[in-house]
Design a binder for these strands. Sequence first.
DNA 1: GAAACTAACGAAAACGTTTTCGTGTTGACA
DNA 2: TGTCAACACGAAAACGTTTTCGTTAGTTTC
Lengths: 352, 352
Amino acid sequence: MKKKITLKLIAKELNVSISTVSKSLKNSKEISEETREKVQAFAKFYNYKPNNIALSLKNKKTKTIGVIIPEIVHYFFSKVIFGIEHIANQRGYNVIIGLSNESFSKEVLNMEMLANGSIDGFILSISKETLEKRDFHHFNETIAQGMPIVMFDRVEDSIKCDKVIVDDLLGSKKAVEKLINSGCNHIAIVTTKDFVNVGALRTKGYILALEENKKALNDSLILKVEDSELIDDNLTQLEQDIEHMLISNPEIDGVFAVNEIYALTVMKVARKLKKRIPEDLQVIGFSDGVLSQNAVPTLTSVSQHAQKIGERAAELLINRLELEDYEEEEMELERYETEVIETELIERESTK
Amino acid sequence: MKKKITLKLIAKELNVSISTVSKSLKNSKEISEETREKVQAFAKFYNYKPNNIALSLKNKKTKTIGVIIPEIVHYFFSKVIFGIEHIANQRGYNVIIGLSNESFSKEVLNMEMLANGSIDGFILSISKETLEKRDFHHFNETIAQGMPIVMFDRVEDSIKCDKVIVDDLLGSKKAVEKLINSGCNHIAIVTTKDFVNVGALRTKGYILALEENKKALNDSLILKVEDSELIDDNLTQLEQDIEHMLISNPEIDGVFAVNEIYALTVMKVARKLKKRIPEDLQVIGFSDGVLSQNAVPTLTSVSQHAQKIGERAAELLINRLELEDYEEEEMELERYETEVIETELIERESTK
DNA sequence: GAAACTAACGAAAACGTTTTCGTGTTGACA
DNA sequence: TGTCAACACGAAAACGTTTTCGTTAGTTTC
C-alpha cells in the first residue's frame, strides 16, 4: 500500500519547505521557475492530489450538498436526485444522500449527522410524519446555524428558505379540465389524506376545475386513501375502495388519480368491472413515470418534470452558497425564492 | 446567524484550556467532577457537536462510503442504494453518491473526486462503457492507494476486491426451466450484447437449461439487442426486432427476457399479434421491479433481491474498514470474498 | 558605499479536534 | 522538613492545507 502523498512528503523529498511546495503547485510567481518546475514534475509523477478534508477544514467549505428524501426507490425522487447530481457535479459539488423513510426521527438524525461540518447546505423534501406532526424545529435550527436549505415538492411555507415546487393545483386542474373537454360528466378523484399538502392541493385543483366548469361536486366521488394501504404491496384495500366507488357510482366516466399507483389500480379495477378504457372510463394520473409509460393502456398523466426540479433546487442552493462568499451575511433581510415548475399533461391512451 | 460553537470557544468562555474541555466532554476522570459537569452543562446548553471535518482529518477516517452507480433512475440500482444506506446508517456511516451515467470518463472523474480523502471506501457497479473498453486502471489505482472497493452486480473478476453478485446463470436457468415445465417447447430469449457480462451470463443460463433438457437450440430465437435501442424511450426498434422474431418463428411459445422493459415489450408486441398471455405465449423477465408487479398481465420474473445486495455490499465494506484498524496492513495476503445472492423466481400471471 | 529594492524562499498561524506529556499544587508519610 | 504520589489541569503536536509575514541574499540607485 503506497502511502498517500502529501505536501510535507514532497517538501522533505525535495529539500524545500512546505510553503514552497504549495506555492509552486499553485504556480505562484513568488517561486523561481526552476523550483516550480521541479516541484510540479515531482507532484505529477507521484500523482499528488490535495486532500479534500484538509481543504474543507481550512476553507470551511466542503463542496458537498446534503440531500434528504423520504424514499429513494421511487421514480420521482430518484429523478430529482438525478437532476441535483447533474448540476452539482457540473459545478464541482458532491452529493450526499440521507433517507428519512418518511420518519420524523430519521429525518432529524440524518440532518444532525450531516449538519456538523460535512456539508455546505441541504436540499430536502419533508417526510410525511414530519408534515403530520408539524414539528419543524430541526429545519429552523439548521438555518439559524447559517446552513441554507432548499426544499422541494413537500415544503413548509413558514420556513425561511428557497423552495422549488410543482404547480399541483394548476396541474390537477388542467388534468380534470382535459377530462371534461373529452366528454366526461362524472369525474371522480382518488387522492391522499389532507396532511400531505401536495395531495390536498391536487384535490383543490380537482374541485376548482369542476366548479369553474359548472359541474356538480359529489363527495362520494372523492376517495381519500389511507397511506398505509400502500404498504407491503398490499393493494387489496385500495382496490376494494376503488371498486366500491365505481360500483356505487356507475355513472363515473372519468377518474383523476393523484399518483401512478392509484391510477393503475383504477385501471385494474375498471378492467375487472369490464369497463373499457378510454371508451367507458378515462383515467389520468399524476407523476409521469415509468409506470405511466408502460401501463396498458398507456396512462395519460401530469408530468412534474422531476429532473428539472432537482436541477433548479441545486442551482438555487449553490447560487446561495457562492453568494455568501461575498456578502458575508450583511444583508440579514435576505429574500427567499419560491420557484414553481410547470407541469405538463402527457396525453396517452387512457384518455380520448 | 449564530457562530458555530467550538472547543476553543467553550474554553475561552469557561476560562479553561481546550484540552480540559475536550477531556471533560469525553468524561475523562483526569478532570475533576466539578469541571466536567460545568463544561458538559455548557456544551449541552449551546448544543455543541464536534466538527466532523476536523475529526476526519485527525482520525484519517471519514465514516463515509462512496457509491458509484451507472444510473439512479432505475429500480434495481435505487433499491441497492436503499440497502446500502440502511446498513451504513445503522453502523454510523454516511453515503455519498456518484453517477457515472454509463460513461467511462464520468466514472473515473467521480472516483477521483471522492478518492482524495472524502470517503473511506467505494461500493460500485461498473459502467457499460468501462466494461466495453476493459480499462480498469482507476479501480486498481484506488485499491493500490489503500482504499477498499466492493463491486456489485457488474463486476470484473481480475480486480482484487470483495464482490457481491447475483447468480445470473442459475437464475436464468431456473426461469427457462420453469417455462419448459409449464409446457413451452420453443423458447426464445431477448438479451443484450455480450460485453455486459450479466447479459452474457443470463444468455448462458438460457442455453444451459435448453441443453440439459434436450431442447433444440435455435439461433434465430436468440435476440441480442443493441443498447442504444432503449435510449430516449424510443422503443420502436426494439419492438420491430421482437415482432420480426415472433412472426418469423410462430412456433415460439415462451420468451425469457433479461430485463423488465424487454419483457414488457414482448408482451406488448404479443398483444398486437393477438397472442394471448399466458395461453399462447408465456413470458418471464429478469429484475423484479415495479413494472413486473404492475404490468398487465403481471409479469413472472426473476428477483435479484437488490436490497440485500446493497446490504451485503455495505457490510463487506464496513467490515473491511473496521478490520483495518487492527491489522494495520500486515497481512498483505488478504483474501477477498465473492458473495453470491440467490435469485428467486416470482411467479405471476404471465406464466401458467 | 550606504540605502533601497527585489527575488526566492521559509516560519508560523489557522481551521477544530484528540492525545501525550509535562507541570504545579496538594496532602500524606517517614 | 523533605520526598513522593495523586490530582487537576495546560501546552503542544499532529492531521494537510493555504496564506501572511518575515528573512535572507543579491542587485540597483545616487
